[in-house]
């Protein structure tokens, strides 16, 4: 799957897979313990953190037992009442859960598509800017909205889409594209798009940073060589830059798939209103309103277990597909 560029070497070293195979063969002959001893530094460098992760991430998972109890905070563990799958049954028989699930998936898929492609294009274009000052300035400015809270952004969006002096409606009416201002915020079917667009606006610059870092990892010699071969800018972008960050893209994509269920609720909550409820309710807000806010710890835990299980399944599936198709995976 290596994309070779005219006159240049690919960024991902062609040596790597070959070396891997060699190494594998050689090690088979050695005993496990001997290899382990040889790799003692690798163990020193990873084992402490594995234990760390075990303590802080895995130990608290005993909390999942709450989903199978009628959990009361004041009681000791052994005095809790065990109820099996009661809370899951309740969850799966609630219409509002399915509504929230639909909205969550719709918005996360939309933002996965748009919110993924736009920062990549932006990073590539930014990389092509010639003036260093301008490049740094644009980059700095573009990440600023990340630090503006959703409350503020939602306020700006609502004002821009307002029917009374909102910039978008004024523009559309002014250009005679529409006769009457559109009540954007009152229309449920617009809601997902508004959320996605706002999200791109706010996070585009921030999400670009990681690709920029990946682009700097591309060997400049490749560009030199391509220019010598007469490749124009589009060719360089298409054949050097994009392949150069392909691993990063794949890896981020796989991780993002795993997070499809976990998109937060803040932006939906702040951009939404009572008229678009049916499109704005998302899983995490549902879990909060119908779980924690009512002290239904067990119910809330059931939702988060559902989330985790689906996430992990999605993750392994997509990871497996990528592994087979492009040899790029995170595990």
């Amino acid at each position: 799957m290596e994309t070779l560029t005219p006159g240049g070497t690919s960024n991902k070293s062609p040596g790597a897979p070959a070396a891997e195979a060699d190494v594998g063969k050689r090690f088979k002959k050695q005993s496990f313990w001997r290899t382990a001893l040889q790799q003692k530094y690798l163990y020193f460098m990873s084992l402490p953190f594995i234990i760390w992760a075990f303590v802080f991430s895995y130990l608290p998972l005993w909390g999942w037992t709450m989903a199978f109890q009628d959990f009361k905070p004041a009681k000791p563990f052994l005095d809790q009442k065990w109820v099996g799958f009661k809370h899951f049954v309740e969850l799966f028989s609630d219409d509002r859960f399915y509504l929230a699930l639909r909205n969550t998936l719709a918005m996360s898929v939309m933002s996965l598509v748009v919110g993924f492609i736009v920062p990549i294009i932006f990073a590539v274009l930014l990389n092509e800017l010639r003036g260093m000052m301008f490049k740094r300035f644009v980059q700095t400015v573009s990440y600023l909205p990340h630090f503006v809270s959703w409350v503020v952004v939602a306020g700006i969006v609502t004002k821009m889409l307002s029917t009374q002096g909102g910039a978008i409606n004024d523009l559309l009416v002014g250009l005679h594209i529409i006769n009457e201002p559109i009540q954007f915020m009152a229309k449920g079917n617009w809601f997902w798009y508004i959320v996605t667009a706002s999200d791109v606006w706010k996070e585009m610059g921030w999400n670009t940073i990681i690709y920029l870092a990946a682009i700097t990892g591309i060997d400049q010699e490749q560009y030199e060589a391509a220019r010598v071969d007469g490749a124009n800018r589009y060719r360089q972008m298409w054949h050097i830059t994009l392949p150069g960050i392909r691993t990063t893209i794949s890896v981020l994509f796989i991780m993002a798939i795993g997070h499809l269920m976990q998109i937060g609720f803040e932006k939906q909550f702040l951009l939404g209103n009572n008229l678009v409820q049916e499109y704005s309710q998302v899983l995490e807000l549902y879990a909060l309103q119908y779980g924690l806010q009512m002290n239904r710890f067990s119910y809330g835990t059931a939702i988060s277990i559902f989330n985790s299980v689906v996430s992990v399944i999605l993750l392994f599936t997509v990871n497996g597909i990528f592994k087979r198709v492009s040899k790029e995976s995170i595990m």
Binding site: I50, A53, V55, S57, P60, F297
Partner: peptide, 21 residues
């Protein structure tokens, strides 16, 4: 190691167990 780490991104025991820990 990689599976062990990756899974931590998607599971959480919840607030109460973490507090007690």
């Amino acid at each position: 190691t990689s599976i062990f780490l990756v899974v931590t991104m998607y599971v959480s025991g919840g607030m109460i167990p973490i507090y007690i820990l």
